[in-house]
Design a binder for these strands. Structure first.
Length: 266
DNA sequence: TACATATGATCAT
DNA sequence: TGATCCTATGTAA
């Protein structure tokens, strides 16, 4: 489930689980054998996320760069669990074991290479820094591409994926095909703030739940059914949670987005 | 058992 | 825009 919230949560969990102690590293799949050998015996010094990119600093001087892509997973497993041949990287610390499968990227890089990667990324609402909000507003205002495409462009804002895209536009009542520069900068600013709020909640719960307290009982939200967690994503054909008209699907930037034709009028 | 699908991104056309 | 890569899961057969 890798959108920005997943990676930030992952960085936090890896830090808490593995920081400071030497790890045993291996690549049961074999495709990261050299990298795992370099990490073997090293200690994790820091882990942080920028959008959907994860960077782990090791005492060996190496930086581990991971991008989960669409299907990648990096999860804590029971220590005794038998390594399977799909595991790109296995990290075993004194108290926990982590395994990485199906990543789009898993590589050891230099600080320069990390800087090259982050230089291509837009501001991430979950990172500290000044002028990120105004930078987002500027980048959105600089293009007439549809906002639904712009939100997936990691050079404009880092961390939004297909689920948050649909949810944010539904909450803001913006039609996905609206030319980005036509949107009132005040609303774009609110979109930034909302993205931060939603992503932070995603980190907290380690899942995407966008429905507000008005629509769901917060006390039971941690056991909320998947069908009740979202307003728009994958709800095409169902009644809009706001106006009860039917939610529609459209294709934008090569992906499917659901939207309400009434609440998100063109 | 097989197939469709997926919260991503890149490269070719 | 379409093909492609990577793996796991849910549904259909």
């Amino acid at each position: 489930m890798p959108e920005g919230h997943t990676i930030h949560r992952l960085a936090r969990d890896l830090r808490r689980d593995l920081a400071g102690e030497p790890v045993e590293a291996s690549s049961p799949q074999g495709r990261f054998a050299d990298g795992a050998a370099r990490l073997h015996g090293a200690a994790l010094e820091s882990a942080d996320a920028w959008g959907k990119h994860l960077f782990c600093q090791w005492s060996s001087g190496d930086i581990l760069h991971v991008h989960l892509g669409l299907i990648g997973k990096f999860r804590r497993v029971a220590p005794a669990r038998e390594p399977r041949d799909t595991i790109r990287l296995l990290l075993a610390g004194p108290d926990s074991t982590w395994q990485l499968t199906g990543p789009q990227t898993c590589a050891l890089i230099t600080p320069t290479e990390r800087d090259d990667i982050t230089a291509e990324l837009g501001p991430d609402p979950l990172r500290r820094g000044t002028r990120r909000r105004s930078e987002f507003i500027r980048r959105v205002g600089a293009t007439r591409r549809p906002i639904g495409a712009v939100l997936l462009d990691q050079r404009v804002i880092a961390g939004i994926g297909n689920v948050y895209r649909a949810e944010l536009l539904w909450i803001c009542g913006i039609h996905p095909e609206t030319p980005a520069s036509d949107i009132d900068p005040v609303l774009v600013g609110e979109l930034w703030d909302l993205t931060g709020t939603q992503l932070r909640q995603g980190v907290d719960w380690n899942r995407i739940v966008t429905v507000s307290a008005d629509d769901v009982d917060r006390r039971v939200t941690r056991t909320i059914k998947r069908d009740d967690a979202l307003y728009a994503y994958k709800r095409a054909g169902l009644p809009c949670r706001r106006c009860h008209d039917l939610v529609l699907d459209m294709s934008l930037a090569g992906r499917t987005i659901a939207y309400c034709p009434t609440c998100q009028a063109a």
